[in-house]
Design a protein around this nucleic acid. Structure first.
Length: 398
DNA sequence: GACGCTGATTTATTAATTGC
DNA sequence: GCAATTAATAAATCAGCGTC
């Protein structure tokens, strides 16, 4: 991927993918003209990308300005692309392509903008690079959970509001939605009582239970439904709930569309390779490669520091961190497994993280990197991320 | 005034932290 | 390590606003 150099490009171009790799930057003329006008009116001192990122973010937040949103969306294309590239490399067995991950990341931009606090973190890009992978991970986890659980577990998990939205999205009338919702409520009342526990592999209700759900539905339909409806038998209720599950899944996770189908306004947008003379010379390429190399070296060094800090912890702290981050156990579960109290588990987690963070800060200071409270916060987040990766939370192998 | 939408607030539950 | 407290989260409810 060619990194954009000009402010105008950064805030007006969008990555185009072809054959699952970066192809070119597509420019939006309206955005280009807008940022160009702003740049012309501003002083030299204000021509930094961070200034404009914060400027558009402020506009977006205060006035929900669509131009501002689009400029920021363009600005965060690289962060989304890097996240997608990392995801592809990580989940080699995944059903998703780079374009899919890229689009999932793009879909999270709105939330990133919402969560970004310019008073606490001075760079939107740095924040996005850190936050987008985390958002993408959550999306993938949710997808995995919903895909793996049975229909009946999903019905138990889903909220009333989401159920109504899914049915509405599927084109159901309000009257039909009310009937399906009542059937679902009856299912929840009876099925939950018969199936305690939180397993995601809940079995299909038996005939007897379907009959009971249908009976409950027929009892409640007159008091719960505003319109008079006929009696329903167990088969109908079962069919309704089976349909409902399909619509809920479809609503929660619509099929990821290819970026090639990315709709653009033909009147305002034209696609071409950006003329970027600074990147055409072999020297410029070398400099760019060196930058990437330097960054990668620094990241490798940081990982080595973290690994050393982890290994220097006592065995029990390492075990606690491993169970917490690798197996995703709660402190209660770790307590049972390691025969220690839950507060002890908590303290070992905190102490372990603190000790590793101290190592990281020491390393940063040795490199003459000034560490303020914001950076400590960022480091702490990076540390959590590293622990999750280190212990292979990403090894979902979907 | 009814209605729908959106964001804020409240409530319930669970998980994690802290004081002793 | 117990018990109390705090934090985080999801869902439900409420209030304010604009539109018809």
């Amino acid at each position: 991927m060619r990194t954009r150099q000009e402010i105008t490009d950064m805030f007006s171009t969008f990555a185009q993918l072809e054959g699952d790799k970066f192809s070119k930057w597509s420019i939006d003329k309206k955005l280009y003209k807008n940022i160009q006008n702003h740049l012309e009116l501003s002083s030299e001192a204000l021509k930094s990308e961070n200034f404009w990122a914060l400027y558009w973010h402020k506009h977006w937040r205060s006035k929900s300005n669509n131009f501002a949103r689009m400029h920021l969306s363009a600005y965060l294309q690289e962060a989304c692309y890097w996240t997608a590239s990392k995801a592809v490399a990580k989940f080699t067995l995944s059903q998703y392509t780079l374009a899919d991950y890229f689009q999932m990341a793009i879909a999270e931009v709105e939330i990133i903008l919402k969560d970004f606090n310019s008073e606490k973190c001075s760079s939107l890009k740095t924040y996005a690079i850190m936050a987008i992978p985390s958002r993408l991970k959550d999306v993938l986890r949710q997808r995995k959970e919903a895909n793996l659980c049975t229909n009946w577990a999903l019905l138990r998990k889903v909220s009333k509001k989401l159920l109504s939205e899914a049915l509405s999205e599927a084109g159901f009338s309000q009257s039909a939605i009310a009937q399906y919702r009542l059937a679902w409520t009856c299912f929840n009342q009876l099925y939950v009582q018969n199936q305690p526990g939180g397993t995601s592999k809940l079995p299909e209700p038996n005939r007897q239970l379907w009959e009971a759900i249908a009976n409950l539905y027929n009892q409640q339909r007159q008091s719960q439904l505003t319109q008079l409806t006929e009696q329903r038998n167990a088969q109908t209720i079962e069919q309704w709930l089976n349909q409902t599950v399909l619509y809920v899944r479809a609503y929660l996770f619509p099929a990821v569309k290819s970026l090639n189908a990315f709709k653009q306004d033909d009147d305002t947008t034209v696609t071409f390779d950006l003329p970027d003379p600074s990147f055409d010379s072999p020297m410029a390429d070398m400099i760019a490669q060196e930058d990437v190399q330097n960054r990668q070296n620094q990241i490798s060094q940081m990982f080595a520091v973290l690994l050393k800090a982890l290994q220097s912890l006592d065995g029990q702290s390492q075990e606690v961190l491993k169970l917490y981050y690798q197996q995703g156990l709660t402190q209660q579960q770790i307590m049972q497994q390691l025969q220690m109290s839950q507060p002890t588990v908590s303290r070992r987690l905190v102490k372990g993280r603190e000790s590793m963070l101290a190592g990281l800060i020491k390393w940063s200071q040795a490199l003459n990197i000034c560490v303020d409270s914001n950076q400590i916060k960022d480091m702490s987040l990076a540390l959590e991320e590293w622990l999750r990766n280190q212990y292979g939370e990403y090894n979902m192998n979907p």
